[in-house]
Design a protein around this nucleic acid. Sequence first.
DNA 1: GAAATTACGTCAGCCATATTGACCTATATC
DNA 2: GATATAGGTCAATATGGCTGACGTAATTTC
Lengths: 171, 171
Amino acid sequence: MADVISPAKLAANPLFLRDEDLRQGIELLFYAYRDFTGEPDAILARLGLGRAHHRAIYFVGRHAGITVSELLAILKITKQSLSRVLSQLVREGYIQQRPGKRDRRQRLLELTDKGKELERQLTRTQRERIARAYRDAGAEAVAGYRKVLLGLIDETERRKILARLDGSKAG
Amino acid sequence: MADVISPAKLAANPLFLRDEDLRQGIELLFYAYRDFTGEPDAILARLGLGRAHHRAIYFVGRHAGITVSELLAILKITKQSLSRVLSQLVREGYIQQRPGKRDRRQRLLELTDKGKELERQLTRTQRERIARAYRDAGAEAVAGYRKVLLGLIDETERRKILARLDGSKAG
DNA sequence: GAAATTACGTCAGCCATATTGACCTATATC
DNA sequence: GATATAGGTCAATATGGCTGACGTAATTTC
């Protein structure tokens, strides 16, 4: 009963908001994410690393000098979880820490050359995959992709992320 | 050095294929997925279940009478991993199994009433989130979202998934 | 300048989810 | 009858989350 959509509700919704279409949207996200993470995972496995290391390396590479707490805010995991990953990456020479100038409690993170090399290797497959999808779909579709994904993000996060994305672009 | 894009390559690419834009596309996918899974996870945690249970419940709900091997092909995990999840869901009365008619080795899966109820509860938040994003972005953007996500999926999978999506729509 | 807060780290234990490899049963198929 | 397939199971292992408690150094506040 509860999954029967009332005629009124149905009429109020444009065609692309039917339950079927929403489910399709959910599933496409699942499938895309599933396949998107597959290739880097294989590379990481050979190095004794996991997807969590990839995420850390990616965002440190993206925002050189990022603080631990900023990274935590991006990843939305606990500091204990991040700590395990991060200390391994530091120990194995992928990431360097240096104390913050303004605030010496901070440990600013950046990739070493070894880290940059791995980052490139990991991101290459994903960048190629995205590039292919973008090219095949065309500029207009890309704009739509961005618009919808942005709309899926928590509202309170959206501004911050937009700033982050644009910030990287500028700097 | 290796991350410097050659002028030739740059010129050959339309604006939306610049490295920055590709990275933006990667990150949007990460953020959207991160926030997309947050709400159901909270519900599941209270029931002693995890994200893996959600996925199983979702796809069994979507394809009533699905076989175990079909479900494995969708989730792309090992049968041992699925088995743990599935047997818990059967034990706790969310999913029923019945032998296949044509092939009695098969165990066709379907949601019980309890399972359907949970499925609705879990999917509600995601459906609402997608609906909001779709509505805000508009029909054209939605088409682009679908196009790009489909392009991100492994090529060998794309046909199968399209058939699956359309099949659910028809039947 | 003492007290409180903040940034970060760490130890310990728990749980969910994935893996590989080996082995088993029942049913289909050649 | 032999072989293949659908599915399940036992065991061991790894990853990546979590909570809770505690510690240190630096900054901020009163």
